[in-house]
Design a binder for these strands. Structure first.
Lengths: 278, 278
DNA sequence: ACGAATTTGGAAGATTTATTCCATTTTTGT
DNA sequence: ACAAAAATGGAATAAATCTTCCAAATTCGT
């Protein structure tokens, strides 16, 4: 029997698409289906490993109601929806405990294990980045930098990799950007003009040079956006906007995965924002 | 009906206990059960979201054989084993996936969503890095570079962030290291002496300068280790050891998460290896 | 307040999936 | 090389899970 309305509402093809649809239709749903939507929205990770009966019980509805809910979302039934979650899980869910011991027993001792540890730390860093991320603040930072004439970048020691990648991206997107303190130049202040903005990156222990350049720039009423690994550092007072990315360490070392991810997002956001204005 | 032997081999109560048992009995298992063990050991995270038929097919055995394998492990059957994985999955709160898709769809258009996408891409990149990692090759690379007098680093454009971070790490660990092509210097070859080694990073599209420096260095019989995003590129022929890190793109952009993780592992391995020798 | 349309609960039925059984093949010990 | 023991494949059976159906309850429009 064909659907009555012209558009047969195709099934979502990814979890995020599914969530969008839930949020779109939730307000219009009758009581039991609304309960199902509410429960699913907050326990979406259970779908891959539960039965309809379990989920229906969780939502406080009959299995048949939950079933109808799946169909309202565009699926043929619960099984089709579950398949979506299982597929995504298979792709995106490694087992690091397993992978680690696997590498341990596979002869090649040192570096492989190190890589596994750093990869695991990277996952954790990205998780905490997303948990702590203040989207509004990031948007403010992007706006500030996008409206600058030239974006000035500064970051030394471990922060240098971050600004150098940002510099590469901004250049690729034709955004005027300069990386400071790279060529024996001691005093960069004169290059930073009214109407520009500074992006300063510094992690504990902070480098004096970066802090001072940021402070002097701020005093000249040029906007300063900062990226650090703590909210308590000296940059908190100096910067107009302070972004934070914490990394999970492996012994005495770390990979700046979260910081690089955040910086890249910022750079791309700046580029896109400029593109519109041009 | 009680078991015939005195010790009824109780079922494992956690995934790690289960892995231990698999490793313990695997060597004594007959062919088909051995295949099941081998497959499970490498795909253990699939248990929560698969059927016996799927897993049996993956292992290349009949469902009945896989079934017997579960019983050998101490479970009453497959379902009991699967319940273990599902329980562990439920407890290990991936509220992260929820948070991610929340951000991605929550009106907050620009930077927040971008960050969510880049974070997700980062996870995928790290997963595929670990899946494809050749631990033995990484160990060879580390050995080669650790035994060099000076480690020379080269990488331009997007690869520069990688070498600059490696340079920072090696310096911190007191390993003699130099980053090339950073200060207007056109010809670096003379600085690379016999007994040194070169680490070259280049991604598609490859930069001629990096490739040529690597080729010239190799011709002089100085060891070259390379990091790229493909096995087919020009570095395959040039390098003594080629490491590969693929990244998942977001639109036209990427964060070099996997490459940076691999490079960091390599740097730390070099440092540790040197420490022992000193 | 009344009838029509929608929503709901529960149970029956269809389907998928797990489990057992046993004849046949392979391995083991002598 | 032979018999006994163990392992295997495939099909039959049992269990669970999904899905549909419809009478009863509720909501909605007038």
């Amino acid at each position: 029997m064909p659907a009555e309305d012209g558009a047969p509402t195709m099934a979502p093809e990814s979890v995020s698409e599914l969530i969008e649809r839930i949020d779109a239709i939730a307000p219009t749903l009758p009581k039991r289906l609304g309960q199902s939507a509410e429960f699913l929205r907050h326990n979406i990770h259970l779908v891959a490993v539960s039965t309809v009966a379990d989920l229906a019980a969780g939502a406080g509805v009959q299995p048949s109601a939950f079933m109808r809910f799946c169909q309202v979302l565009g699926f043929s039934g619960f099984s089709q929806m579950q398949a979506l979650f299982r597929a995504e899980y298979r792709e995106l869910r490694p087992d690091y405990a397993e992978r680690l011991s696997q590498l341990r027993q596979s002869g090649a001792e040192g570096p492989g294990r190190l890589a596994a540890s750093f990869a695991e730390a990277g996952h954790k860093s990205l998780v905490s980045l997303m948990n702590d991320l203040d989207a509004a603040r990031l948007a403010t930072a992007a706006r500030l930098l996008a409206s600058a004439g030239t974006v000035h970048l500064v970051g030394l020691r471990r922060a240098f990799a971050i600004v150098s990648y940002m510099g590469y991206l901004l250049d690729k997107m034709k955004v005027p950007a300069v990386i400071h303190r790279t060529s024996g130049q001691i005093e960069s202040d004169h290059a930073i003009r009214k109407g520009d903005a500074l992006f300063a990156v510094s992690f504990t222990p902070f480098s004096e040079e970066t802090l001072e350049l940021a402070a002097r720039t701020r005093r000249r009423k040029v906007p300063v956006v900062a990226l650090s690994d703590t909210v308590d550092g000296p940059l908190a007072a100096t910067a107009d906007v302070l972004l934070v990315a914490r990394e999970v360490d492996v012994g005495a070392f770390r990979v700046p995965t979260a910081a690089l991810t955040l910086a890249t997002s910022l750079a791309v956001a700046i580029g896109q924002s400029r593109e519109k204005t041009d």
